[in-house]
């Protein structure tokens, strides 16, 4: 006689649990393509909610995260081997003056210091004191074409990310070279990094080597793996 471990009714009662089994893995197949399509819709919605004129809150000096707690986060545990000397940022694509823009040129552009919140996708946040120049200035120097829609950024460690043009031109989107009034340290992205307080932390690329202005929507290191592309906050 067969031994019934579970009656049919008991099994039916367990069915929600059985349905849930397997949800604890990354979305695959049709589920993933559905969720990614939906994510595209949310990206579009985010681009509509984003107000290019609205500034992220700037905090007073006594609200800053202390320098000891200025957190390092990146795709790799170790910082890349960076040679800061003779650093230059290449700007190419839909610009009238493509080329290599040396650090010295960037340092001469108007400076902006701001205490803004850096929100990590993981849920933690910090308020460092950033110093740099609006990315907009460099893009204008390079003669960005008015019809251009996207900016792709490449780092010395092969990290990549990209932005919509309104976010790239936002007044608080910086090419940052200072934190807490001192030059950036290597682990925080020296000599230049992006700081974009209107987006999640993974949009603030470190060790920026190259900026490409394009109309073909670029991806990015995390974005290609499933994180939202617009990532507006």
């Amino acid at each position: 006689m067969p031994v019934h471990l579970l009656s049919r009714r008991q099994l039916l009662k367990l069915s929600p649990v059985l349905l849930l089994a397997g949800c604890n893995s990354a979305p695959e197949g049709k589920t993933e393509s559905f969720l990614r399509t939906f994510q595209g819709f949310n990206d579009w919605m985010q681009s509509k909610v984003f107000n290019p004129e609205r500034l992220a809150a700037e905090y007073s000096d006594n609200e800053l995260t202390t320098e000891e707690r200025f957190r390092v986060n990146g795709k790799d545990a170790e910082s890349p081997d960076i040679q800061v000397d003779n650093w230059a940022v290449t700007v190419e694509g839909l610009v009238d003056r493509p080329g290599s823009y040396p650090l010295k040129t960037i340092l001469h552009l108007p400076k902006r210091v701001m205490n803004t919140r850096h929100c990590c996708v993981e849920g933690w946040s910090m308020i460092p004191k950033w110093g740099g120049t609006p990315l907009r200035g460099l893009l204008e120097l390079a003669g960005v074409r008015p019809e251009a829609r996207y900016i792709a950024v490449e780092s010395a460690d092969d990290y990549t990310t990209s932005y919509d043009m309104p976010s790239a031109l936002h007044a608080q989107t910086l090419i940052c070279y200072e934190a807490y009034g001192k030059p950036l340290t290597i682990e925080h992205g020296a000599p230049v990094r992006i700081v974009i307080p209107t987006k999640l932390g993974y949009k603030s690329a470190k060790w920026v080597r190259k900026i490409v202005v394009t109309n073909d929507k670029p991806g990015g290191y995390w974005e290609d793996q499933g994180y939202d592309w617009f990532a507006g906050i």
Partner: peptide, 30 residues
Amino acid sequence: YNASPLWDFQFPSVLTLGGWLAGARMWHFF
């Protein structure tokens, strides 16, 4: 929550949906 716990505990992954942070965010924002 598990990506950056508020308190000194994490939830067993069997109770969670999405497999990793990006997957969970896709589900959450759907």
